[in-house]
Amino acid sequence: MRDKTYLQVPRDMKHEILEKLAEAIYSFKAYPSDQEFNDVATALIQKHPCLIEPGSANGCNGWKNSIKFKMGNYRTKLRRAGCTDVAVNERKRKGQAPHTSIKRPKRFEINFLPNFPDGEDETSIESKRKELVEEMRKRHPTAALITKNMDSTFALRRRELVNLEPPVKDTMERWPALFTEGQILAEFCRLSSKNLNTEFFKELDKYTPRFFEIFKSKGGSVGQKLQKYLQQVRPESTDITAKRTAVLRGLPVILGDENTDFFKTCFDCEDPDMSHTPIGILTIIPEDRQASPDSLHLESSGTAIILEGRIVMDDLGNLPHAMCLLFGLTYALNLEYPQQLKYTFDFIQRVLLSLGHKSLKPKIQSLKNLLMQ
């Protein structure tokens, strides 16, 4: 520190440093991004200035490259040892473009593809899955048994959903309990270690007053649409569901998402055809109500979730409840976010639930800045 003499790192010492770093990185993420490798290298030379590389532009480019290579070697060791979340990508790149079909956590899942529990194999877990299916056929399934077996079959379920990417119809047949509210929330907790229901509504309610101010400040066609939502919710109202509905319907509007094919309505006397709807929320309204596209339908008869052209959950009560569970289902089923609401779902993930990188897309960063004012 006194005379700025940098350490000439011996080969065995560098090997030890890189091994420890790879082990620590893997405990957070199996496939870090380039920016995350840069963050690790920067943190290393800040913690130990003697490791700064005098010939490097930022003092750590060499370390960054070494950490990248070491991380690849570390994954190879784990793959040979049978670690499933990296073994799934064995030989994936042979004859393919870089990163093609590489299966990795997309949205900061902590337990993306776990190994089977000790003492269990595919046969023993499959028997528990069949027991689950039989239990779900009962009029009153035993909640404790379902929770226990859903926990113990988690690894098998993730292998199927990540490796095979089955249609939602097949998943409903093999894992019917996964389409119940309690197990959606439990599965989200298994994947991300977060309480979806609590955090989703806590953060949504925290930002609601500021959202209403932002809605009022908007002009043009966006402002006109937002005003129609605001007019249906009285400022002095204590109806928290109405306020949440207005925010969730207005969020795609200010983010520039196209939500006309996502939020669906039908009358309670109809049998709607959803075969052409890949993903969406269906609000069921009384026959004597007007089905306006700008209506929040606060007095609906019920709400349902649509996936791959079929209703997978219904009788959900209200739109905010359905939106929360649909977000949980995208994690539980390893689904892509709906293209027409990609910014909205990304906002929920990164801002409301704090899952993901600190760097945000410009639209989302701009909205977050407005919310913080």
Rank of each mutant, 00 (worst) to 15 (best):
T277R: 02
I254T: 03
F263Q: 00
D261G: 06
K218V: 01
V247K: 12
K225P: 05
V247Q: 14
C266Y: 11
T208A: 15
G250T: 04
D257A: 08
N195C: 10
P209S: 13
K206F: 09
Q232T: 08
D261Y: 05
K243H: 10
F262R: 04
F211P: 00
P252M: 09
F215N: 06
F263A: 00
K216E: 14
K225T: 15
R249D: 08
E236F: 03
I240L: 15
R249N: 07
V222Y: 02
I254S: 02
E203M: 14
R244F: 14
G250E: 03
I214H: 15
C266S: 14
F200P: 10
N197I: 05
K216H: 13
K216C: 06
Q224L: 11
F211R: 02
G256K: 08
Q232P: 11
L255T: 10
S193T: 11
H276I: 09
K228I: 08
G250D: 01
V247G: 09
F262D: 02
F211N: 06
Y229I: 04
D268K: 05
R249K: 14
L251I: 00
D205I: 04
V253C: 10
K228N: 12
C266Q: 09
P252N: 06
Q231S: 11
D239R: 02
G220K: 03
D261K: 07
Q231R: 14
R190V: 14
L251C: 01
L191G: 09
S237V: 03
D257Y: 05
T241N: 12
V253M: 04
E199L: 09
T238I: 04
L255A: 13
S217E: 13
R249F: 10
V247E: 15
K243E: 03
G250I: 09
P252Y: 06
G256V: 07
M274F: 03
R244P: 14
T198E: 14
F212A: 08
L230Q: 11
R249C: 09
D205V: 02
V253K: 03
F200I: 04
R210L: 10
F267Q: 13
L230F: 05
T208G: 00
T241W: 04
T238F: 01
G223E: 05
G219W: 02
V222E: 12
T241H: 09
Y207M: 09
P272T: 12
G223L: 02
A246T: 02
G256R: 07
V253F: 04
F263N: 00
F200E: 05
L204K: 02
S217H: 07
G223C: 07
K243M: 10
T260G: 04
T260Y: 07
V233L: 00
D271W: 08
A242T: 00
S217K: 12
F267W: 15
T260W: 09
G220W: 11
I254H: 01
D261E: 10
T208M: 05
L251R: 00
D271A: 12
Y229H: 12
S192F: 07
E213K: 12
K206P: 03
P209K: 11
N197A: 08
T241Q: 06
F201P: 02
R190K: 13
L191K: 15
V247W: 13
V247T: 07
F267K: 15
C269N: 15
Q227N: 13
S192P: 00
I214N: 07
G219H: 14
L230N: 10
T208E: 13
K218H: 11
V233S: 01
T277F: 03
